[in-house]
Design a protein around this nucleic acid. Structure first.
Lengths: 145, 145
DNA sequence: GGCATTTAGATTGCGCACAACTCAATCGCG
DNA sequence: CGCGATTGAGTTGTGCGCAATCTAAATGCC
């Protein structure tokens, strides 16, 4: 097989493996708090700005309602968020942190540092990796809308 | 929040997003053939060397039997592979390509090239990305065995 | 005002991932 | 040889991720 094709395959597989490895690096840290990695991402979005619509959260994380609806239901069942149907536009549901949802922020403050330590990349590499992955994602999404 | 922690979060999220973006770049190419990306990976492993044990495939792709057993069952139902319980050691099941499983190889020959085109990274970037991701995965797996 | 179109969210269904468990076969050690 | 420990595969249950579909609400256009 062509060298370039092989390289493409290897890179895609490396991406697939690395993503699972990072998620599994988060797992032992989040599990004691009763969170999964995607749930943690939703909370990050809400900690930055509370009371967002499901739609906005989805735009931020690139997740549709098919993924978010049940996930938010679980976060609500766990007591970390509340969902409110807006009166101004009753199609919209906004998601609000509860007290324990806000409190969780302190509990996970050390998580990113611990994951960074497990990853073992230095600052330069993290920046380069973040930037090339962001560009890759944007390029693909531009071509598969 | 600490600048470094933010960087770590951004990089993990970029990895999570890029992995899904790449998988979704494969989807329209593999879907007409009745394959998913993980199924395609299993076939890649078998095209390289046929008749491997489930265990070996799992070691190659870092997938356990909980993922592979039903996946292989679906590949078998689709007529691309056959599973045989070994007589020498009856715990072992080896997976063998069928004629149509082998034939599929030609049909997907163009796939990696098309994905590479969608990704829009040049050769140097692909190599750098593959290598840093491979190192990242190994480092994490070394620390979370 | 009335009706088609669009929009936000939920639901259904399928296929991974992964943990936890079962079961049968094999291995290893006394 | 016998038997406990280990191994390989499968099963069960949970939680994404995404396509397809549904419903209700809002919008637009006449």
């Amino acid at each position: 097989m062509d060298e370039t094709l092989r390289l493409s395959l290897q890179t895609c597989f490396a991406l697939y493996g690395a993503s699972r490895a990072v998620t599994s690096a988060y797992r032992p840290l989040l599990d004691p708090l009763g969170l999964t990695y995607p749930q943690y991402l939703v909370l990050l979005v809400l900690w930055e700005r509370d009371g967002r619509a499901v739609k906005e959260i989805g735009a931020e994380l690139r997740l549709d309602s098919g993924t978010l609806s049940p996930l938010l239901k679980r976060l609500e069942a766990a007591g970390f968020v509340e969902r409110r149907r807006e009166t101004a536009d009753e199609r919209v549901v906004t998601v609000h942190l509860t007290g324990s949802g806000r409190a969780l922020r302190e509990s996970v403050a050390c998580v990113p540092g611990q994951v960074a330590a497990k990853a073992g990349l230095d600052r330069e590499e993290l920046i380069a990796l973040r930037d090339v992955l962001t560009r890759l994602t944007r390029t693909i999404e531009g071509k598969t809308p």
